[in-house]
Design a protein around this nucleic acid. Structure first.
Lengths: 146, 146
DNA sequence: TAAGCTCTTTAGAAAGATTCTAAAGTATTG
DNA sequence: CAATACTTTAGAATCTTTCTAAAGAGCTTA
């Protein structure tokens, strides 16, 4: 995270408001997940990883609840799902349009801010269709010499 | 497929050569898969779909063999894997650099030839990394009015 | 605050895709 | 043809994600 970047260490009440704002009940589990997800900058996380973070933080929560809420948050626009690996799903707390670096070595994602990469020359779309999103993944790996 | 597009209805001997060329033995199963994959223009196919096509074509082949060979062909550069859906893998017979339309409605892929779409302004890469590939997925869905 | 209703959570089962195992089969080489 | 190495296969196993149905918790009203 760069020094000037937006950051918001959220209070619990703010998190509750944020959950209420999307018409979900602020349960203990949701608040705990929201805290893990939204308290400290942008994150890219898998269900399994979020689950273990929650357990490590002392929150008793089942994996099913993790999945339920990741999907509900995504539907509500609080998260966005990123497809980079055919074996698991990543959820991104940055819901503004942007792209990603994917470190193939360790399965880690890094944001590319929207202005930093341009897609142009998009060909005519198939008839009767419209764009629902454009995803650019720049897959990177450790280079030979360094 | 457009009228002027490259097409090569391959003979069985050509397929065998192609398999030998990547140091694999031309078994009955490999030849049958190569025929389904490479005989008629570019394809985007899942393991399950290829399996059922093979069975329909009267080729006795197990799903494990499908997976084995899809991976071996991919490693050999005869196929390329496209990640668009977190629940299954697609294999593309077009191994030249290019991008994709993904029809969200029916899970279908369509090539965007390399010259038809440009990615520019790629930001500086993280230290010690190099690009291994750039994937652009233009996700499309049926539009409201048509 | 109690009742009642709805939404949530949960454990465990189930599903779906992919990989693994180890044994039987086949291509290749000499 | 024999010896060797590579392949195929059925079925089990694994992994991620979803489902089920029962118990629990938040919310509204009186």
């Amino acid at each position: 995270m760069t020094p000037l970047e937006h950051k918001r260490p959220m209070k619990k009440a703010d998190l509750e408001d944020r959950i209420r704002a999307v018409d979900l009940r602020p349960t203990k589990q949701r608040i705990a997940l929201a805290e893990l997800l939204f308290s400290d900058g942008n994150r890219h996380i898998t269900a399994e990883k979020l689950h273990s973070e929650a357990l490590d933080a002392g929150v008793r929560i089942s994996l099913a609840t993790i999945y339920n809420n990741l999907h509900q948050f995504t539907t509500a626009g609080l998260l966005r799902e990123v497809v980079v690996d055919s074996s698991k799903s990543y959820f991104d707390t940055n819901v503004d349009p942007h792209h990603h670096f994917f470190h193939e070595q360790n399965g880690t994602l890094e944001d590319i801010h929207s202005g930093d990469l341009t897609v142009s020359n998009i060909p005519e779309l198939p008839d009767g269709t419209e764009i629902s999103s454009i995803d650019v993944i720049v897959r990177i790996s450790p280079d030979n010499n360094s």
